[in-house]
């Protein structure tokens, strides 16, 4: 039996899914698809399919969790049993508990929690189909859903990963590259305030590689931000912008 050698980057510089090293996967965001939630978003980030629902500000239950000076932010990241090729146990795993925490901490600096004391904001991130980089896709969608819910925010949060694959720094690492590559670095970023709210690194990078990786990831976040903006504009101002265009044309 021979072991199959995987070429993560071919001689033309193309990756396994045909992308260049500085290219994002296709991203599509739909805003407000869950009517029962105060805000919601559905994101397709490559093969990732994630639904995010935001509820709140609403009353805190149990009451003792309420903070007198600010809002409680609660976040649940969950992968559905059918999201991966082998069935995933629906009970929250160690990994999901951790990702719930990092998503919450990535979003917290953007939300003006002091505006809603004694209340709670709940964010539910449900992964329907996973393909590497689901925490970044989750943060991106959660930020759009928060804006849709009309929660006061200092800035949007955009997230994107970068990594080291076959000794090259690449943008937006997918599932195979994550598993076979050398390093994976998810970054969440406030694009207008220019602040990093999440930075994780799985793998080993030299100092120069780290800097290049971070710059690449931030560049990716800025591209993601443009897509987030388009999605929100489409939902809220879509009709008016088209009618304005029509009026000026007439």
């Amino acid at each position: 039996m021979t072991e199959q050698v995987i070429h993560l980057i071919d001689k033309d510089g193309k990756r396994t899914d045909g992308r260049n090293i500085d290219e994002l996967r296709d991203i599509k965001i739909t805003v407000g698809m869950i009517k029962n939630a105060d805000g919601s978003a559905f994101i397709e980030f490559g093969k990732n399919k994630i639904i995010v629902a935001v509820y709140g500000p609403r009353e805190v239950h149990p009451k003792h969790m309420a903070q007198p000076d600010r809002c409680v932010l609660r976040c649940r990241y969950h992968m559905s049993p059918f999201s991966t090729d082998t069935r995933k146990n629906p009970a929250p795993s160690r990994r999901e508990v951790e990702i719930s925490k990092v998503i919450r901490e990535a979003l917290e600096p953007a939300i003006i929690l002091e505006d809603y004391p004694r209340a709670a904001i709940d964010i539910f991130v449900e992964v329907l189909q996973a393909d590497g980089g689901s925490r970044c896709a989750g943060i991106t969608a959660a930020s759009v859903a928060l804006a849709d819910a009309g929660i006061n925010m200092r800035d949007m949060v955009s997230a994107c990963a970068a990594g080291k694959v076959a000794d090259r720094i690449v943008l937006d690492v997918n599932d195979i590259e994550d598993k076979e590559g050398c390093a994976d670095m998810p970054v969440a970023y406030l694009p207008n305030l220019e602040q990093v709210t999440l930075l994780q690194l799985d793998g080993i990078l030299t100092k120069e590689e780290f800097n290049e990786c971070l710059d690449t990831a931030i560049k990716g976040c800025k591209m993601v931000y443009e897509i987030q903006k388009q999605a929100l504009i489409q939902k809220y101002f879509g009709n008016e912008i088209t009618s304005d265009v029509k009026e000026t044309a007439q």
Binding site: A147, N152, P191, N192, K229, F237
Partner: peptide, 19 residues
């Protein structure tokens, strides 16, 4: 003007009122 969270509306010494 239509704005999204984080958009800079204007620079200068203006008074913030709501949202």
């Amino acid at each position: 003007k239509y704005v999204l969270p984080g958009d800079v509306i204007i620079e200068g010494n203006y008074r913030p009122l709501m949202n």
